[in-house]
């Protein structure tokens, strides 16, 4: 009980105190520095905590992981590309790679496409904000919570028994046999992607909806007055104008698909050919005790993401140039 009280005190008083104290104290110290030095030193004083955290928790470990990926499971012996060869020649890991590709295509398609359709539809009704909240709310729920929720959507009972899963409840009312959604590949991977799409569609919708409202109403109105139907308006005006935003959300969804982990871990843990790279990495690390292979897996994940990152930075620099 005591240690919890101490933790609570650290949480509420200690942490903010240290943070505030850092700036106040270092500004005091700067006051003693000669004038010319002060101006040069000051930015680094303000940046130092951030640089320290980024260095210790992102830059150093990433570089270290790359090094470790060339060593054996005790991180002692150099093994060259063995860990990568293992990844690229083992059935389970290749399945993971294939599944990430399915995730990438389908999740991006479902979430961005669904988000766009919903954004366009809700733009035309008065209950827009309520509808958006409902689509958006899964994003506030943890992936673990979503996994539990959907486990009951996909639940299966043998034919003839009362179904307890919502989907099979619907399927059996049509007279068909219940479907074991999470057992048969590749349907089970698609089922997991649907859970992810349930979560992420709201995210895409909100951003696309914001962009949609940026399109000039006069422009749309003028096109309609000229006799264009809704489909033509969408193809000729709305879609091209939305394209940059679609690129942004699609990029985010691609990275999300590559990093997919929680849903798979909670719902199938990679059984029945639903493995993904991120879950495989955790398994190599904790279940198999293979930090070398785990590192190689993480590096491969990083290699897949780097092109997306490069595009991101290019876009960022282009935007900076306009500023």
């Amino acid at each position: 009980m005591d240690s919890r009280l101490i933790t609570a005190l650290i949480v509420v008083i200690g942490v903010p105190g240290v943070l505030l104290g850092y700036i106040v104290l270092s500004e005091r110290l700067l006051a003693f520095a000669p004038d010319r030095m002060r101006g040069r030193l000051r930015p680094w004083v303000w940046l130092a905590p951030a640089i320290a955290f980024l260095g210790v928790f992102l830059v150093y470990p990433t570089l270290n992981t790359i090094v470790l990926s060339f060593f054996d499971k005790f991180s002692k012996k150099f093994v060259g590309f063995d860990n990568y060869v293992y990844f690229l020649t083992t059935n389970d890991t290749l399945t993971a790679l294939r599944n990430n590709a399915i995730w990438l295509v389908l999740l991006t398609f479902f979430a961005v496409g669904g988000g766009m359709i919903i954004a366009i539809l809700v733009d035309r009704v008065r209950y827009e904000s309520i509808a958006k909240s409902i689509i958006f709310v899964p994003l506030a729920i943890s992936f673990v919570g979503a996994g539990v929720i959907w486990k009951f959507m996909f639940d299966y009972r043998p034919p003839g028994q009362p179904q307890t899963g919502t989907l099979n409840g619907i399927v059996t009312t049509t007279g068909a046999d219940p479907v074991p959604w999470l057992i048969n590949a590749p349907m089970n991977t698609i089922a997991l992607i649907i859970v992810a799409a349930w979560i992420w569609t709201g995210f895409c919708m909100v951003i696309l909806s914001g962009a949609l409202k940026g399109i000039s109403a006069e422009l749309l109105e003028a096109a309609r007055v000229d006799g264009a139907n809704e489909l033509q308006v969408f193809r000729g005006i709305t879609f091209p104008l939305l394209l940059p935003t679609i690129a942004v959300v699609a990029t985010t969804m691609i990275i999300t698909s590559l990093k997919a982990f929680d849903i798979v871990y909670v719902m199938t843990n990679g059984a029945y050919d639903t493995e993904v790279i991120a879950n495989r990495m955790i398994k190599e690390l904790f279940t198999y005790g293979q930090p070398g292979r785990a590192s190689a897996t993480a590096v491969l994940l990083l290699l897949l993401i780097i092109p997306v990152m490069a595009i991101n930075i290019r876009r960022f620099r282009a935007q900076e140039a306009i500023r």
């Binding site: 992102l58 150093y60 470990p61 990093k259 955790i282 690390l285 993480a298 994940l301 993401i305 930075i313």
Partner: peptide, 24 residues
């Protein structure tokens, strides 16, 4: 080095957390 440093920070946005687990 302000701009370069900021671009590095933006680049770090997409580092998968998995890449950091073993060393940390």
């Amino acid at each position: 080095g302000r701009d370069v440093l900021f671009i590095i920070v933006v680049g770090l946005l997409v580092i998968p957390l998995q890449t950091t687990f073993v060393p940390i």
